[in-house]
Design a protein around this nucleic acid. Sequence first.
DNA 1: TAGGCTTAAGAATAGAAGTTCTCGAATAGG
DNA 2: CCTATTCGAGAACTTCTATTCTTAAGCCTA
Lengths: 190, 190
Amino acid sequence: MPRAPMYDLDDVMHQAIDVFLEHGFHGAVMDEIIARTDFNRRGFYLEFGSKQAFLYRVLEYYQNTQLHDVLSALEQHQGIQAIHKFFERYLDLVQGRGCLLVNCITELGHDDEKIRDIGRHYIDRLQIDFIASLERAVSAHELSKDTPIEAVALQLTSYVQGFAVNAILVQDNQELRIATQTLLGSVSRY
Amino acid sequence: MPRAPMYDLDDVMHQAIDVFLEHGFHGAVMDEIIARTDFNRRGFYLEFGSKQAFLYRVLEYYQNTQLHDVLSALEQHQGIQAIHKFFERYLDLVQGRGCLLVNCITELGHDDEKIRDIGRHYIDRLQIDFIASLERAVSAHELSKDTPIEAVALQLTSYVQGFAVNAILVQDNQELRIATQTLLGSVSRY
DNA sequence: TAGGCTTAAGAATAGAAGTTCTCGAATAGG
DNA sequence: CCTATTCGAGAACTTCTATTCTTAAGCCTA
């Protein structure tokens, strides 16, 4: 039997997320990917086949771990509190880094059908989860029955993407927190 | 005296905006830029010096024309109507294309200080213009004096960036229109 | 009309980047 | 302990791409 691999795929994924966040897909060169992931070229191409296939895997990992953890806040908490928790976690995730999925959409969305599909799925899921949270908030009498739930969910969904863009630019997150408080406050006043 | 150039710089800029929107900065190759702008290599490098310097020029042009036209809606109309008009025009601008400035921020923001500066300036201006519109709406008694103007402006600013991302993914703009109506409706209820 | 200067077009170049290949080293079973 | 097999490191290769260079043609002035 041969020697065992020295790399850990979870570590590789984490490092790769950082590299792609910093430089984008085309801006990230294989030399840096190999170096920072403590991988080796041979193993890389045996494991993933190509840089593009690698991106898809990293994106999948990013969704299944980081984004999933944030979205689960919507299920783990009750009503409006769930949405507050979501934004709290999301801010921690994207602060000063941005969102890998959003970056892929803006860089590759026009050319890559698969990226668009992944993006639409994510947006849809986000919206569905917001709707569920809002409905539970209505049931718990935290929100008025007159709340236009689907429209509010759409609004929140769009706002989340804007968050990811602004997070790349702003130094401190105080402003983003304030804007979010206001947004959620206005939702509560239906 | 020599012959006159055959290209028109305005045309070149317009075409370049499309190319960069479709492929991003690194994804856009000089061959396509040259071909689609009806430019020529020699003239290109005499005029701009490099692909990167060209991007800055295109981005400046994009701001001074397309984004400026949209932002001017905030000055040309009164109160809340101004903000409605803004989103109407912005939706037309980014629908199915996205925003060149947002795309540059997400693709190059981490590596390029100049892009970050341009992005921050844009965000600041957007916020200042929103604040001015909201203040006028309060003066005209369209909004309550209790409206937290700065926080609402922050919220709108973030929402605009999300718009630009979603616009790349969604086919029809009906959903985005609904979300915006809801957002502006909730602002009016302070 | 002739000449000089600039343009357009694209070939050429130099360097970068994704992918493949080579080879010595390490590991686990026989 | 030997050997088969896989790994790690990086050289090599090939393709791609930004930039420069060459050449022929056009335009304005004298």
